[in-house]
Computed example of a mutant assay.
Amino acid sequence: MFAITHTRSAIRSDLNHGIIFMIVAMLLLPVGDTFAKYLTGTLDPVAVTMWRLLAQAAFLLPVALILRSRLNGAMFSPVIALSGVLLVVSLNALIAAFAVMPIATAIAIFFVEPLFLTILAWPLLGERAGPRRIGAVIVGLGGALLVIRPGFSAYGWATLLPLLSAFAYALNMIVLKRASATRSGLTVQCGATVYAAVIMLLIGATMAVTGYGLTMPTLSQTNFWLAILATGAIAAITFVLIAEAYRAEEATTLAPFQYFEIVTATALGFLIFGDWPDALTVLGIAIILGSGFYIFGREGQAESRAPRRKRLGR
């Protein structure tokens, strides 16, 4: 009896850790996005992406050196390279969207990503989401749209940029899930960041050679360098948390918790831009949080009933 209880407690602990890591990461992500939006006011989106990835690498690599005992598995391999490519596509598309539309609108469109992830996880990971889990994702999406209420037609083809970012991001989450099966989260993120930074440096060099120069901050623009360092540091922290979350839990389980990003986005809109949440915004946030906590409760109940059964969705 003690052994069974101990096993259930350990599994529930792993589940809690995965979900908690994802929630913390989602609450931090909009902070980095806000810095990126600020930088697009002066720099090219490609330059912002390049500097963000370089700053992210600058923070991750010393951490990897200090915590080298946590580096398990191959850091440089085809699957990690694929993650780096998808990271480049997702970041470039989203930051380009920030340059032409409000950050809240871009994030609202990006929130189709959990739906992409839930759909892709079945054929690519064998994680079949049940109707309740799919329902929670859809409800969370509805809550996000209720908060943002974007005008999709106002920006024309630019609305495809967050959609492209969301699709690449969802694919990257699948890749991270596979890579994290034999590697630590720190190993995966360090490798993917190095690949992505090298790719962006090559893109920047190619643009310079072909005559399309990138706008760059001068050494005297302290605010821009601080913003670059901040967005890199936040990215480094959040993506390690995300990798650890996907190592501990199924992609379809974590998908609804990505809507927690809207909480920080709404708070930053109020603190920085003075946007007061109205009644529909409060209702939307409540729906988002409710869908996430519903999945959390369902997963905990399922693990208590069948600790050794593979979770296939309910």
Rank of each mutant, 00 (worst) to 15 (best):
E127S: 06
R311A: 14
A58F: 11
L125T: 08
V79F: 11
E261H: 04
G126H: 10
G143I: 03
L280Y: 15
Y212L: 14
S291N: 06
M207H: 11
Q221Y: 08
M200P: 03
G41K: 03
A55T: 03
A251D: 10
T42C: 09
G130P: 00
L214R: 00
T222D: 09
L54K: 00
S83V: 10
L241D: 04
G211Y: 01
I80N: 06
I288L: 11
W122Y: 11
L271Y: 11
F273Q: 04
R183L: 07
C190V: 15
G274S: 08
G130N: 02
G73W: 01
W276D: 11
A181L: 14
L29E: 10
T40L: 07
N72D: 13
G140V: 02
L71W: 08
L219E: 09
L312N: 13
E113Y: 14
S90V: 00
P217Q: 03
L86K: 08
A168V: 05
S184F: 08
G211D: 02
T266G: 12
A196I: 02
L39G: 04
T105L: 14
Q189S: 15
N72P: 08
L171Q: 05
G269E: 04
A97K: 05
F224Y: 12
I19M: 11
A243I: 07
M101L: 02
I237Q: 00
A104F: 05
P162G: 06
L202Q: 08
G185E: 01
L283V: 15
R12N: 13
A168D: 05
R308F: 14
L87G: 13
G73T: 04
T253I: 15
A10N: 12
T118L: 07
V209S: 11
G313R: 04
A93P: 04
M200Q: 09
I262N: 04
V198W: 08
A197Y: 03
T105H: 14
M200I: 05
A106P: 02
Q189V: 15
G290S: 15
L54M: 07
I272P: 00
M75C: 13
A170M: 07
T231G: 08
S220C: 07
G292H: 09
A158G: 10
V89A: 04
Y155A: 10
R311Y: 15
A179Q: 06
Y259R: 05
V175E: 09
G191F: 01
V100A: 05
L27G: 01
E261D: 10
A136I: 03
I148V: 15
L164T: 13
G269L: 00
L15G: 10
I119R: 05
I20T: 12
M50S: 12
L94T: 00
L186M: 09
G297M: 13
S83D: 11
S180H: 07
M1E: 12
A166E: 00
V63S: 05
I237S: 05
P78Y: 10
P256N: 05
L39F: 07
T218M: 12
L28I: 12
A236R: 00
R70P: 09
A196V: 03
Q301G: 13
Y212G: 14
A154V: 10
G135M: 08
T105P: 10
T206E: 09
T252Q: 08
K310H: 15
S184Q: 09
F273S: 07
A64R: 06
P131E: 10
W225A: 01
V112H: 04
Y259K: 05
S83R: 15
G292F: 10
F59R: 03
V89W: 01
